[in-house]
Computed example of a mutant assay.
Amino acid sequence: MATELDYRPISTDDHIIEPPGVWDGRLESKFQDRAPHVIVEDDMDYWEFEGRRIPNIGLSVMAGRPYEEYTVAPVRFRDMRKGCYDPEERLLDMDRDGIEASALFPTIPGMAGTLFNQADDKDLGLRCLETYNDWLADTWCSTAPERFIGQMIVPLWDIDLAVKEFQRGISLGHKALSFPNAPESLGLPNIGDAHWDPLWDAVEEAGVPVSMHIASGSMRDTQLPLEVAGGTPAEVFVTVAPSSNFVSVATLLWSGVLDRHPKLRFLSVEGGIGWLGYLVQRADEVYVKHRHWTHAVIKEKPSFYFKRQVFANFLDDEVGLAIRHYIGIENIMFEVDYPHSDTTFPNSTALVSKRFKDVPPDETRMIVRDNAIKFFGLNLD
Rank of each mutant, 00 (worst) to 15 (best):
L177D: 09
I159H: 04
P9W: 01
P225Y: 07
D221I: 14
T139Y: 02
K354L: 13
G256H: 04
G64L: 05
T364V: 13
D193K: 08
D42F: 10
T364L: 05
P155N: 06
L136T: 04
P55W: 07
V257C: 04
R355K: 14
A312S: 00
N190D: 12
R65K: 15
P66E: 09
I332Y: 00
R34W: 03
D337A: 05
K301L: 01
G272F: 06
D284V: 02
F376G: 07
K122E: 11
W140Y: 01
I159V: 09
V269N: 08
L115I: 10
E184I: 13
D358Y: 14
K164Y: 14
A176P: 11
Q32A: 09
I99Y: 09
G217W: 05
S303E: 01
M333N: 01
F237P: 12
A176R: 07
F266R: 00
F166D: 03
T222M: 13
F105M: 09
E48F: 04
E88R: 15
D43H: 09
V280L: 07
A63I: 13
D138L: 02
M62R: 12
F148V: 04
T71C: 10
P155K: 00
K299C: 09
A101C: 10
H174A: 06
V336D: 01
D358S: 11
R78V: 13
Y70Q: 14
I159Y: 03
V280D: 00
K30M: 05
Y287L: 02
V247H: 15
E28R: 08
N245T: 14
R168C: 03
F49T: 00
E227C: 14
T343R: 00
D79K: 09
V368G: 09
T114C: 07
D316A: 02
